[in-house]
């Protein structure tokens, strides 16, 4: 334990308004802490710079999963355990349900929140690719009110996001229409469980008569932030899927990817495996199309 608890202040206002008031009074001064699965690791390592922390844990207004006709609204305080156990998340946003099972272990899933995962903004975040390929939106809240932005514009750089210092992530909205799409999600981690992703790829697609009418692709750990692969998508859009299109898409992905070498993997490996995963997804589409 390298951190010193006494060097930090932690308060728990117990209500959303309480937290927002605090953040409005002193924007940027209070670091929100939900399940602590990131912040407490930094604390133990003596790397936690923020002196003032405000607890979001136990605020019921942030921990909800609500299904409306067209989408699921997930409160930022919903844990990954909440997500993976939820019937509609399982059926209507199955990629997200699958990603939820990837988070650390059972003990991490019962504390880690979707809000924390997104705000932390790791390029390797497990839930990000699934949300990106489903056109998810995030809803931000402050004393000034609420606003919704596409999740694809939430991350703005390495561990940077579009929130203002007085804002909190309130909810994530996941459209249900992608349940009709062909879907793909695969993570390549350091091991089967308790693994940080070396690379992950998510995809949703619609084909009509062998032609790609809609496709969304997103990856983890291929760039400084979780991101859609727009240029790769463009290669496929409107194309009849076949070996040549697949090969060109893979080449486009290898061009588009900007991974790094770090202690977990190499850039070359990440690019190539992402391309292989894309090949696996596209070949699955091809096989599914070929079926009567």
């Amino acid at each position: 334990m390298r951190g010193n608890a006494e060097a930090h202040e932690l308060i728990a206002p117990g209500s959303l308004t309480g937290v927002l008031e605090l953040m409005a009074r002193a924007p940027g001064e209070w670091m929100p802490i939900a399940g602590g699965t990131e912040i407490m690791v930094a604390h133990a390592a003596g790397r936690l710079r923020e002196k003032k922390l405000v607890s979001l844990w136990g605020i019921g207004e942030l921990r909800f999963i609500e299904v409306s006709g067209e989408s699921i609204a997930i409160g930022a305080g919903a844990t990954f355990r909440d997500l993976r156990m939820h019937d509609t998340v399982q059926s209507g946003a199955s990629l997200l349900a699958k990603a939820a099972t990837w988070i650390g272990s059972i003990a991490n899933q019962s504390r880690a929140t979707i809000g924390g995962n997104l705000v932390n903004g790791s390029p390797a975040a497990d839930s990000s690719p699934a949300l990106l390929v489903c056109d998810a939106e995030v809803e931000l809240i402050s004393m000034r009110g609420k606003r919704r932005i596409p999740y694809s514009s939430f991350h703005t750089g390495y561990k940077r996001n579009a929130m203002t210092p007085d804002e909190l992530l309130y909810a994530v909205h996941v459209p249900l229409r992608f349940a009709q799409h062909r879907q793909y999600l695969r993570k390549v981690g350091t091991r089967r469980a308790m693994a940080i992703s070396k690379v992950a790829l998510a995809g949703t697609a619609l084909l009509h008569g062998g032609v790609v009418s809609e496709i969304r692709l997103a990856a983890a750990s291929l760039a400084p932030l979780p991101a859609r692969l727009y240029r790769t998508e463009a290669v496929l859009h409107g194309r009849a899927l076949g070996p040549l299109a697949i090969r060109e898409a893979q080449e486009a992905l290898m061009e588009e990817a900007k991974p790094i070498d770090d202690i977990r993997s190499t850039a070359a490996y990440r690019s190539r495996v992402a391309a292989n995963l894309l090949g696996e997804f596209l070949n699955e589409l091809l096989t599914a199309e070929a079926r009567p």
């Binding site: 608890a5 932690l10 308060i11 728990a12 802490i33 399940g35 602590g36 699965t37 407490m40 690791v41 133990a44 922390l53 607890s55 844990w57 136990g58 355990r81 650390g104 272990s105 059972i106 003990a107 991490n108 019962s110 504390r111 308790m194």
Partner: peptide, 24 residues
């Protein structure tokens, strides 16, 4: 939160007690 040696149950869920600030 990697090894689980500090696992306890809190409100019927498994948690790593090394990652729980006691205020929570």
């Amino acid at each position: 939160g990697e090894c689980g040696s500090c696992s306890v149950r809190m409100n019927g869920e498994l948690v790593n007690s090394c990652l729980v600030p006691v205020l929570q």
